[in-house]
Design a binder for these strands. Sequence first.
DNA 1: TTGAAAGCGCTACCAC
DNA 2: GTGGTAGCGCTTTCAA
Lengths: 325, 325
Amino acid sequence: MVTIKDVAQEAGVSVATVSRVLNNNGYVGADTRKKVMKSIAELNYSPNEVARSLYKRESRIIGLLLPDITNPFFPQLARGVEDELSRSGFRLLLGNSDENVEKELDYIQTFVQNNVMGIITATNHVDYDIYEALNLPLVLLDRTSEEYPAVYADGRKGGRLAAQTLIEKGAERITLVKGPAHVKPAQERFQGAIGALSEADVDFSVLSTTSYSFEEAQGWAEELFDKYVDTDGVIASNDIVGIAIIHEALKRGKKIPDELQIIGYDDIPQSRLSYPTLSTIRQPAYEMGREAAQLLLKTIKKEPGVERIVQLPVELVERKTTRKE
Amino acid sequence: MVTIKDVAQEAGVSVATVSRVLNNNGYVGADTRKKVMKSIAELNYSPNEVARSLYKRESRIIGLLLPDITNPFFPQLARGVEDELSRSGFRLLLGNSDENVEKELDYIQTFVQNNVMGIITATNHVDYDIYEALNLPLVLLDRTSEEYPAVYADGRKGGRLAAQTLIEKGAERITLVKGPAHVKPAQERFQGAIGALSEADVDFSVLSTTSYSFEEAQGWAEELFDKYVDTDGVIASNDIVGIAIIHEALKRGKKIPDELQIIGYDDIPQSRLSYPTLSTIRQPAYEMGREAAQLLLKTIKKEPGVERIVQLPVELVERKTTRKE
DNA sequence: TTGAAAGCGCTACCAC
DNA sequence: GTGGTAGCGCTTTCAA
């Protein structure tokens, strides 16, 4: 390992001087600087971030905590965060919590132990003490809270929009799929949909589910059609479930969208590839990730007047599982 | 921030003693140990990993370099790596390279700067000098190389299997979709398929594509049917493209699998949710991630007799886009 | 404009 | 058994 000492020796100056050219502060003579630069290049030196971090009590690392990168909504978020962060030279320490408090706490602890400069979390347990005591820039992603800055899309409005769409397009026996109770955004969109449904003159039923996963989505779809045989409009809890419902409906010979309309939530990439393509409520996941990163960066840099809440718009994407009129 | 000094003071011992109980080495009297433990708990102390890392020249961090987490094959890998790693208390520094050498080099550099204990990379540019000079445990994931330990599934065999399957099931005008030339595993499976196709008495055509992405998959599918109108069997470059092809085929009124059979590659989770469900060659992505992590861990711990190559089996998953006989 | 040296939090060696 | 202390690679006073 080549250290600052080696560079200093090679260049015939002190480590202090090397440090100055490295960080571009303090006075350094033009030719001294040149000499140092040359030695740096020759030795292929790059400073040890760990030592730096120890002294400065900060690093170029951000902690990102996600429920599960395996859920296709989150890779988008993660990429957004990473792309934005890496433009400022920050790197990502990544953790999947599976919505499990212990894992979450565990990750938070190691984030702190590693001197991360800030944390972005898409988690439900922000109310825990550990975040309070953290004393670190924190931004919530895809979640809300009274206390912390947050970037999210308006779930209530999204849910409402989904329901309204189905109502307008003539669905009369709507089934609303409710996502896991412990997942906040799932509840938000559910509440929004319930609101719109209640205000309209339609019959509707609620199917309660406890997961979003690919493995179980098909089970929910089957249960849905077993219980509500003649439903003609389903509001899925997310696109995965929506796609599973398309699948099951086709299997049972239902005509989409004539006999049955389906609307999803998220607009994950594969929704454009289902057949028929899934109408859905779009959340700008990649953008959300970027915004969260920007917000965090600004907070770290202590820029004045940073907005605490960034709410991104949801949007109806009409494709082929809803009727045209 | 509470440091080892604070704990020492609180417990009325020296920092050396605290360090000993922390690391469970050296002699510590039973009651001294108890006192120290108590102080640690009271102050809610947890050691600064950065300081530790600086002294020991190692850390509890692994660098993971992926092409693009947004491609649904990779989250599985990443989860496998993370789950295995976290069992040993390691964390993940994550980077997406987009198959771009510069980004890759950039990430490698920061990995090194942050004292990572090892690197897992799913990258095509291992031949570059930087890896040689690295002097760090490295394992390739989903890639092969003469020089480094690697975990992968047998692409040649997979490609061969895909082609054989279609031939056996009576496809007579096969179209083979070739993935991006710079992506090694894509070429492997392509070669495998070409081999099987060449040995059989079938006509076939090759459609050359330059990406795997959702955005462009549909374009490839359209091109495919425009160019090869009467193909009755397509070997997709991966499941994304396979799903796009199903979509396009249905749109054009083709009967699957009677008029047209399709076989994918990877077995990403959403392949079970397409309609009809996609027959495919399964790569055990999650397992691959875990194996890579295990291999790396063993290398780090310098366990003797560590295997250099872990080749996981590919497997035909018959679903509804291939015929039954 | 430059160098010497203290110190970031921790570990490990050497005394006692 | 326990404490003192050097030193990991770096940054930043303070003096010169």
